[in-house]
Simulated scan of single mutants.
Amino acid sequence: MSGRAPAAGNRSRARRQPLHGRCGGLRCWEDLKAPATAALIREHVGTGGGLALDLGCGSAAVAAALAADFDGVVGLDLDPSAVRQARARGVPVVRGHAERLPFGDAGFDCVYSYGALHHTRLERSLPEVARVLVPGGVAVLADFHGDLGPPAGRGPRRILPILRAALAAFPAYARRAGTLTALRVTAYRLSPAWIRHVRRDVFLSPVEFRAEFQTFLQEAYFHQQNGLIVVVWRKSPEPAPGRTA
């Protein structure tokens, strides 16, 4: 495993400003989801260890949950509020964009993300993921697919399903974290800012999703579950001495 410290570099602007941290309910929501997300990453990383990059880390709830699984976890997010919240947890975070990662080549043993890459141009972000991984390193990239909304180019998602999903989740949140936390999370998910944000999301169909990721991460494995596709890709190790790639 590498254990090399990443170096900050150039940053690029987002096409759309994310919403992490504008409401306390979002951090509560991330905290509620973090254990399941961390378990998903562990399932595909194996023994872990080395240095990991949390791509689109938000308030770093998942990074904190995975701290014991790696020698170090570094977060990356574009939103300055998210960066502040992540640092308040004690997680080292760099502000930057996935399309132009501010790290040197081959600095991470693992790169993972959850629900972040659909905000990026995959033809730019996926080669960046491959670039910053060490030979033999693994990427675990989970994102939503187009069965959850209209295909690209067909306009914004409908509001009613978004509202229904937020309200339907309230009982489970209340059981897990209490009524007050459930109210904060649900209020956030019903807020006009969040609804505007979600309505602009555009997801690839499952077929398009697989084709796009396979183009840049050849020989990746795809696992479809619970409205997500989880992409697992291991970078080819360096060739043995005396052999060509």
Rank of each mutant, 00 (worst) to 15 (best):
P161A: 07
T179Q: 12
A193N: 00
E123C: 07
P127H: 06
P135S: 07
V132E: 02
P156E: 13
R184E: 12
F213E: 02
L148W: 11
P135R: 06
V129N: 03
P192E: 05
L190M: 10
A169T: 04
A165I: 00
F203G: 00
G146H: 10
R158C: 09
D147I: 06
S205F: 06
R189E: 10
S191C: 08
R199D: 04
R200K: 13
L204V: 01
A193G: 03
V202T: 14
I195Y: 02
F213K: 06
L148I: 08
H197P: 00
P150V: 13
P171D: 05
T181S: 08
F203Y: 15
R176I: 09
Y188N: 04
Q214L: 13
W194I: 00
G136S: 03
R157C: 09
A152F: 15
L190Y: 06
P192G: 03
V207D: 15
P156L: 14
A220W: 10
G136W: 05
P192Q: 05
Y221T: 15
L160T: 14
R196G: 11
P206T: 08
R199V: 09
L180Q: 12
T179L: 14
P192S: 05
G153D: 10
H197R: 07
A165N: 09
T181W: 00
Y221L: 14
F216T: 03
F203A: 01
H145Y: 14
L160D: 14
R210Q: 15
R164T: 08
L183P: 02
S191W: 01
Y188Q: 02
Y173R: 09
L122Q: 05
L122A: 06
Q214W: 01
V134G: 00
L122G: 05
V140A: 11
R158Y: 01
A142D: 09
L163P: 02
G178E: 06
R154I: 03
R157G: 12
L204H: 13
R175W: 08
A130P: 02
T181K: 09
T181H: 06
R121A: 11
A169Q: 11
F170A: 07
L183N: 01
F216M: 06
A220C: 15
G137M: 07
E123M: 01
F222I: 11
I195G: 03
L117D: 05
